[in-house]
Design a binder for these strands. Structure first.
Lengths: 66, 66
DNA sequence: TCCAAATGTAAAGTTGATTTTACATTTGGA
DNA sequence: TCCAAATGTAAAATCAACTTTACATTTGGA
């Protein structure tokens, strides 16, 4: 699963810590998601999409193999 | 988090077992999601949306409190 | 150049998603 | 009515998401 969080964050000029605070998780959680160490839960993914007022499907996409 | 899987399944005339097979999880997993016992992972949620050719946001929505 | 902010990562622990097995209940159709 | 398919649920086990703490590296701007 790939995601465009880093780009969306750049567009909105938010740091990882900013985003983390907005969605109520730790900064490391955001970092881990961006660096592909793990996939966010659906609830978190929806919250992140909400911050960027984007559809989840724009932000998160399946890849070959998942 | 609420979801409209049961309705989508009815529209597509699929049993829980059918859907489970299509997305590669156990039937109980689908049942548990439909009955609200737990929330699917993002990967699973995306796969389910793909089966129904719907946007994730149509199928899964945050509620007050999450 | 230097410092502060931002980012990357790691280890240990907790919680929640998912599986497997197994059984009970419901429901639609012959 | 009766049977088979569909659905609901429960317990135990496994794995992945997420937290906290802590530290190292990178980067942009004064």
């Amino acid at each position: 699963m790939r995601n465009r969080i880093k780009v969306a964050r750049a567009e909105h000029n938010l740091s990882q810590a900013d985003l983390a605070e907005r969605v109520g998780v730790s900064r490391q959680t955001i970092n881990s998601i961006e660096t592909g160490r793990y996939v966010p839960s659906t609830v978190l993914a929806l919250k992140i999409a909400r911050v960027f007022t984007k559809a989840m499907d724009e932000l998160f996409q399946l890849e070959e193999g998942d």
